[in-house]
Nucleic acid binder design. Structure first.
Lengths: 317, 317
DNA sequence: GCTGTCCCATAACCTGACGTTATGGATCCG
DNA sequence: CGGATCCATAACGTCAGGTTATGGGACAGC
């Protein structure tokens, strides 16, 4: 049974005549008549009695009208619900974010989204980038905040496929990041942030005027995740030494506490320091310490989901 | 929003891929792909994420799928209900019948219908033919049992429009009968029945061997409704006299009681006598007493309603 | 009784929607 | 690396779906 014809039938029943329904639909009367005939053939019985005064429903017609009404209700509610989603009167985004972004960027973005679109919910899962990508690929998250440490000259176009980007950028970290979650993903960088050197408040490097990394070649080093370790090794190698890694922790609060009591020095991105700054450390910045790019990853096409697109806009602001 | 496309979308969601849905629908994959694209343009957002492993719903897609499921349920139930009505597993006929038919023909027909199709209901309203036709025209009855007294040569085709039939038959009673309810009605004669003379058990005419109507020219007469009176006047005129009408009653039980106590003679159709035969009367039959045709009237097209058609078949059996 | 106005039905016609085939690209597995 | 799966787009042919043309019935007003 053709649902369009059922709805045409309903228009006729409500108009009381085929001609009246044709006027309402903006069609000619034979068009409606032909559809009704086809519907009656399909139904196998008369749905309407026709006459000079218009139509009257038969009992099968009354039965079908009840169902046609219910059909129209479902269709109308579908249209309304999609309109609500499109206009951001409703929606939900499942976001996976690494800790320092979860502590800084995400609250600001979610607050902005909440201010503009209070009916849109964001569900946050804290996850390091590889796990965040896995969530995206499995369909358990809509959007992932990820980062990659940049070589000094790295710059990538936004909105291009992950494969194209990492091919053009060529960095091992970037390939590792987006390939781990499988293909069909889109990576959109949002901004760069500097990586800073973090030393104890009493450390001789805390106040040294012309500080270079090489000055710290004999210090014990504290590093974080796999990517952060790789970055530290990379920038130290450019400074001509291999750092002695004594401590490892992903947790930037823990890392800063270790630095404060003199157990070593570390490199941390700006966002981690924005999230938490231990009073017993000092932060030194220099271009040679490097930068990292953070951005979002999502399934191709997910940016056409209104709530996801809105959150991306807030994160990019 | 095109309900057909919503159902196509539902097929894709359930199949897990556009190609799988195409196989299920018996179409090629681009056909399904194009319909989905059109649906997404109409919806104004992405409903699906596409990939090498098939599709995954977005949140708008999940919302729409719920409505699509409800749509499919309504459509399926409509199909089932119409199938039940077509197969006479369900149904209702509103029948208007004159008293002697209500007492004889109708119970037999309804019993037969009940035996064959126990789920079909008949709702009976007792009504003389003019009122029965009015009920049909107002849409308050589906079928009417009516009769007309025949001239000796009257014979009509079945299933033709009422106007055509009464034009061909030409009898005043018939015109009165079907015209009174307006046009768009179809009259279908079912059978002829003889009209009989009814006299008291002790009446001299009860046992007279070679009885003619002229023998009763001096008797007091008892007549019924307008049409029955006209018939009596007609056949007596053919016998060469005008009957002295002393009593009038539509009720064939009353009429027979009056005859039994000697208050007059009357003409009654066979069905009235089948319904009730007073032990104090005698029935004489002769072609000169005339016949009457009984049949059904309904709105044009109503015979394509399965329950109505079934009842007509039972009435005609 | 005639005319005008409403109703519905059918035939013939034209157009574009809707399916196809052809083709290309992406992903994944062996 | 090749084969098998997925999806997308372009081009094409057919016929469904709307139109116009026309005819007939019913009814109200004159």
């Amino acid at each position: 049974m053709d649902p369009k014809r059922v709805l045409i039938f309903r228009t006729v029943a409500r108009a009381g005549s085929i001609s009246g329904a044709a006027r309402e639909l903006g069609w000619t009367q034979p068009a409606v008549s032909q559809h009704l005939r086809a519907l009656e053939r399909s139904a196998g019985c008369a749905l309407l009695l026709r006459g000079a005064a218009g139509v009257e429903l038969t009992e099968p017609g009354r039965v079908l009208l009840a169902r046609a009404d219910a059909l129209a209700v479902q269709l109308h509610m579908a249209e309304e619900e999609l309109a609500d989603l499109t206009a951001l009167r409703r929606g939900r985004v499942r976001l996976a974010a690494y800790p320092s972004a979860a502590a800084t960027l995400v609250p600001r973005a979610v607050a902005g989204l909440r201010a503009r679109h209070p009916e849109v919910d964001v569900e946050l899962t804290e996850a390091e980038p590889p796990e965040a990508l896995a969530l995206i690929s499995r369909g358990d998250a809509d959007l992932a905040l990820v980062f990659s440490y940049d070589p000094p000259h790295g710059a990538v176009g936004e909105g291009r496929s992950a494969r194209a980007d990492h091919a053009s950028a060529g960095t091992p970290e970037r390939r590792d990041q987006v390939a781990a979650g499988g293909a069909g993903l889109v990576w959109r960088p949002l901004a760069d942030e500097p990586v800073a050197l973090v030393v104890g408040a009493d450390h001789r490097a805390a106040t040294r005027r012309r500080l270079t990394l090489a000055d710290l070649s004999e210090e014990p080093w504290i590093v974080g995740c796999e990517r952060c370790r790789a970055h530290a090794l990379s920038v130290c190698a450019e400074a001509g030494f291999e750092p002695a890694v004594r401590h490892v922790s992903d947790d930037y609060v823990v890392v800063q506490n270790l630095v404060a009591v003199g157990l070593g020095v570390t490199l941390l991105p700006r966002s981690a320091l924005d999230a938490f700054l231990h009073p017993g450390v000092r932060v030194r910045e220099h271009p040679s310490f490097g930068t990292r790019t953070f951005g979002v990853v999502h399934r191709e096409g997910a940016d056409l989901v209104p709530a996801t697109a809105a959150l991306v806009r807030e994160l990019a602001a």
